[in-house]
Computed example of a mutant assay.
Amino acid sequence: MKKRVLVLCTGNSCRSQMAEALINHDLGERWQAFSAGTQPAGYVHPLALKALAEAGIVHEGESKSVEQFYGQDFDVVITVCDDAAENCPVWLGRGKRVHIGFPDPAKVEGTDEEKWRAFVQTRDAIRERVCGYLAGLE
């Protein structure tokens, strides 16, 4: 049986979406990932989807509220932004809660190339730190 992980962020449009897709792609035999936001944006950022596609991952993401997952058990709940870590409701379900934070690539200002580079760097950092953390729990 697969272990379950919930990845939380504020808007559930960039970091948590990329983490969900990367976990399901890289660790899908042992982990099933879900993502949600404390204040869902209602969309998945196009550059997050593009960064995933560049890594060979097709993600059909949907920005969801954490409320959708209340009452469900997870082996791990990971917050990937400081705001979600601070404002995340007390998780009443089973599971360890950890924070592995990343800067928000959607807030990067500059050229299109600089914005793109921020999404790629965030994708790679999530793959290394979040997937690495979960792989170490097996």
Rank of each mutant, 00 (worst) to 15 (best):
D75G: 09
V130Y: 04
L92N: 11
G95N: 02
K2E: 11
T10F: 03
P105C: 14
D82R: 15
L49H: 01
M1I: 09
A55G: 12
I100T: 05
A41F: 13
R117E: 15
A19E: 03
A36P: 06
F119H: 11
I126Q: 13
Q68M: 14
F119V: 07
E20K: 04
V108E: 13
E29V: 09
W116P: 03
K64S: 14
G11Y: 05
L49E: 10
A41C: 00
L8N: 09
L134K: 09
V44S: 00
C14T: 14
H45S: 07
A48V: 02
L47M: 15
R4W: 06
K115Q: 12
A48W: 11
S13V: 08
N24D: 13
D26T: 15
A51Y: 05
Q72M: 15
R30Y: 14
Q32K: 14
F74D: 09
I126P: 04
G11D: 02
I23R: 10
T111H: 08
V5I: 10
R123G: 06
L137P: 01
G37I: 07
G11K: 08
E138V: 14
R30P: 00
E54R: 13
V44R: 06
A41L: 11
H99F: 10
L22G: 11
Y70L: 15
E128L: 09
V130A: 09
T111Y: 02
G132V: 05
A84T: 13
H25G: 05
L22H: 11
D75Q: 09
Y133L: 13
D83W: 07
V77W: 03
R30F: 12
Q68Y: 12
E60L: 09
F74Q: 05
R123N: 12
P89A: 12
V58D: 11
K107I: 08
V5E: 08
T38L: 05
S16Y: 10
A125V: 04
E62R: 15
K107Y: 07
F34V: 02
W91C: 02
I78A: 11
A125F: 02
D124N: 13
E54Y: 04
P89Q: 08
F69Q: 10
I78N: 08
E114G: 04
A48S: 15
L22C: 14
F119W: 03
H99Y: 03
D83P: 00
G93A: 07
R4I: 01
M1F: 04
K96T: 10
L6A: 10
I23Y: 14
F102L: 03
H59W: 08
Y70P: 00
Y70K: 12
G93C: 01
E62G: 03
D75L: 04
A48Y: 02
G71A: 12
V76P: 00
V77M: 03
V76I: 15
A41R: 03
A33S: 08
